[in-house]
């Protein structure tokens, strides 16, 4: 396990640019995620939030700029080193991304078999039950993804990312498409995960309630660039029209 001090940046992004054809989605984005904090990246749809988070795990390659995760430049890693870094990151996808052809247990077993290869079947089962209990869905172990509600899918998906004991959690719109009650439950779960698993989290959202409930620090993206960075109070008190439109 990599040892990281509290003041050290776990993720460091510098002057990141990403475009698709002529469309420039990210224009010179720089940010740092410090150890043990929840950093919320706020912004309207299409502001480049999801592109940013996908560049961190190199699902997308940036055109310019640097992305350092645990001190390593993600852009320069070979396939094996990239796999090693990815094993320390849990990624909660916007859609949940549960494998439709597998039941909940198989979904959770999938990363475990590939990443924690030395575990016995008994240890695997124990681990699966532990994470399912942590997200409050132990009784869904034999269900197929199609039998789960939107909120349950998100929870199971969260359990699948937690099963590998990640150091960093990346949440891509964790509350999108959920009702307010389930959204609040997911926000609480994000805070629980931070406490129990001692993770540092980057939360991409446009849901202001989720940002309020989870953020230690906030960054607002607008038109692919950092618009404002600070604590939640600073955003709440801001007189800026764009920020006020989010926090009204």
């Amino acid at each position: 396990m990599t040892e990281v001090k509290n003041t050290e940046a776990i993720i460091e992004i510098g002057n990141l640019r990403k475009s698709f054809g002529n469309l420039e989605v990210l224009k010179d984005v720089s940010l740092k995620l410090f150890n043990g904090e929840n950093l919320v990246v706020l912004g309207k749809s299409g502001s480049g939030k999801s592109v940013l988070i996908k560049c961190i795990v190199r699902l997308l390659s940036p055109n310019e700029g640097t992305i350092k995760v645990l001190g390593k430049d993600v852009k320069k890693l070979d396939r094996n080193d990239l796999a090693e870094i990815r094993q320390k990151i849990g990624f909660l996808f916007q859609s949940g991304a549960l494998y439709d052809s597998m039941d909940v247990k198989q979904n959770l077993e999938f990363p475990l078999i590939r990443i924690r290869k030395k575990l016995t079947q008994k240890q695997r089962n124990e681990k699966i039950e532990e994470v399912l209990e942590n997200v409050g869905l132990l009784d869904a172990i034999n269900k197929m993804p199609s039998e789960l509600s939107g909120g349950m899918r998100k929870r199971i998906s969260l359990a699948r990312t937690l099963i590998i004991d990640p150091m960093i959690m990346l949440y891509d719109e964790p509350t999108t498409g959920l009702d307010p009650v389930t959204s609040d439950e997911i926000s609480l779960l994000i805070n629980d995960v931070k406490k129990k698993y001692k993770t540092s989290s980057l939360i991409i959202t446009h849901d202001i309630e989720c940002a309020r409930a989870t953020a230690d620090r906030l960054i607002m993206l607008h038109d692919g660039a950092v618009y404002k960075e600070g604590k939640i109070d600073e955003f709440e008190k801001s007189t800026d029209t764009l920020i006020k439109s989010f926090f009204k």
Binding site: L59, Q87, F93, Q94, S95, A97, D100, F110, I115
Partner: peptide
């Protein structure tokens, strides 16, 4: 195609598969 649309292929990639 449906796995691509629902990000299941991306999820596989980030879980070192």
């Amino acid at each position: 195609g449906s796995m691509k649309v629902t990000e299941q292929i991306d999820a596989m990639e980030v879980s070192s598969t």
